[in-house]
Simulated assay, not measured.
Amino acid sequence: MIKPIELPFYAKIAFILVTFLAIGFIFCIGKDVITPVLMAFLFAVLLMPVFTFLNLKLKFPRHLAAIISVLIFALFIIGILVFISYQVTDIANDFPTIKKNANAFILDIQKFIRENFHISIGEQKKYIDNVAKDSVKNGNANIGSALISVTDLLLDCTIIPIYTFLFLLYKNHFILFFAKLINKENHAVLKDILSQIKVSINNYIVSLIFEMIVVSVLTSLGLWIVGVKYFILLGLITGILNLIPYIGILIAGIITIFASLTGTPETSVILSILIVNLIVQLIDNNILVPLIINSKVEINAMVSIIGIIIGGAVAGISGMFLAIPLLAILKIIFDRIESLEPWGYFMGNHVPKRFIWRIRKVKTEN
Rank of each mutant, 00 (worst) to 15 (best):
I26L: 15
L38Q: 03
G24F: 09
A14S: 05
A179H: 04
I305K: 08
F355H: 02
C28Q: 11
I249Q: 11
K126T: 07
N93M: 13
V199M: 15
A65C: 00
K229N: 12
A132I: 05
P325K: 15
L54N: 01
P161D: 14
V82G: 02
P8T: 13
K184Y: 13
L155A: 11
N202K: 06
S195D: 12
P161S: 13
V269A: 08
F174H: 02
N202F: 13
I193P: 02
T52S: 10
P245V: 11
V50Q: 00
G311A: 04
L181D: 03
N138Y: 12
F231S: 15
S339V: 03
V214G: 08
K191W: 15
L271T: 00
R358L: 14
V199I: 15
I287P: 01
N116L: 14
L234M: 10
M212N: 02
G122F: 14
A301Q: 08
L181G: 01
I84P: 00
V88D: 04
F25E: 05
F165K: 01
I2F: 15
Y10K: 07
N277D: 10
I305R: 08
V37C: 09
C157Y: 03
I193H: 11
L147Q: 03
I148R: 10
I67C: 04
W224Y: 15
I299H: 11
D284M: 07
I160D: 04
K229T: 07
Y345I: 08
K184W: 13
L274I: 09
I244D: 09
F25I: 03
I237L: 15
L208V: 06
N116M: 12
F105M: 06
Q196T: 02
I80L: 15
R358K: 09
A92V: 01
P342R: 13
Y246G: 00
H173D: 04
L282R: 06
G30S: 11
V150D: 10
C157E: 06
M212F: 04
A141V: 05
I175K: 02
E298M: 04
A146C: 03
T89A: 13
S207M: 08
I128N: 05
V45L: 13
N242W: 13
N101C: 07
G30F: 15
N130G: 07
R336W: 15
A188T: 03
F210C: 04
L107W: 09
N294E: 13
A328Y: 08
V150Q: 09
A323M: 02
K3D: 10
I240L: 15
I255C: 05
I29M: 12
T238V: 10
V303K: 07
V199H: 14
E298L: 07
L46I: 04
F321T: 01
Y204D: 01
S69A: 12
K31S: 08
V45D: 06
H173W: 09
I332K: 06
